[in-house]
Design a protein around this nucleic acid. Structure first.
Lengths: 131, 131
DNA sequence: CTTGACCTTCCAGTAGCTGGAGGCCCTATC
DNA sequence: GATAGGGCCTCCAGCTACTGGAAGGTCAAG
């Protein structure tokens, strides 16, 4: 099948699929006219990629996950370890963003938000704070 | 003062400061030997930048904030609007990450994590799910 | 035969730096 | 005066994960 059809099935832009081929994540065949030709299993890999990307895994993590996907003798513990590492990473990010939000909210709360220049937010940014 | 001293005071790498000059966020003078020469007010701008960046503002938002910083007749409402927009953005991101975390946690919870290949995480990634 | 949709490759750009090469400047020490 | 070190300079490349666009080949329909 052509790249357009594969893109449809995998829910990925064709551009992205070509990119994935560039970085060796998927290797479709080629037709005589030069068009890429995707098999069912190629499409499975693409769907796997779009799902793992949408879950926040980086390309390199996806590469690792795909190799486990291909490995009949994998240990589910290895997969779980990757997932747990990602969960902790996501969690750190959440905490960081919550901190940001708290700081910004406190600043915004104290700002009159009128037509005068005086502004606690500006004061903070301008250095009225010791790191 | 030299870039090294400015970097120290602003808590930014010298490389980053040169980059900020490249994109016209700060314009230090030059000494006869070609070295950049930072004034107190340059350092204030740099500190402003590092603080706003650390609060999650993009470079373009920092540019806008700096222009308000320079504007004696600014309305604090304009600053507050920028902050509020950022808060909402951060909030959206938090919600997204919490969703990710929930999905990943559910998958990890159901995975035995032993030496056998069977794995609910892999099953999910492989498409045993209808979007 | 032409039109339009689809496919191809290749180049460039996004955000915000960061690393490194190659080379000049400055100060101190021998 | 020579040399060693550290700091400074510019310029180029690379990072992540695509995305847009140009220039051109292919295919099916009318």
């Amino acid at each position: 099948m052509n790249i357009g059809a594969a893109a449809e099935l995998a829910n990925l832009p064709a551009k992205t699929i070509r990119y994935y081929e560039d970085i060796d994540l998927v290797r479709p065949g080629r037709l005589d006219n030069g068009y890429r030709d995707y098999s069912e299993s190629d499409v499975h890999r693409l769907r796997f990629l779009q799902r793992s990307r949408s879950l926040g895994f980086t390309i390199e993590e996806c590469r690792l996950l795909l190799s486990l996907y291909d490995d009949d003798h994998r240990a589910s513990a290895d997969v779980k370890a990757i997932a747990n590492a990602k969960i902790m990473e996501v969690d750190r990010k959440i905490v960081e963003l919550q901190g940001l939000k708290a700081t910004l909210s406190a600043l915004a709360r104290d700002c009159h938000g009128d037509d005068r220049p005086e502004c606690p937010i500006m004061n903070d940014l301008a250095g009225e704070h010791e790191q």
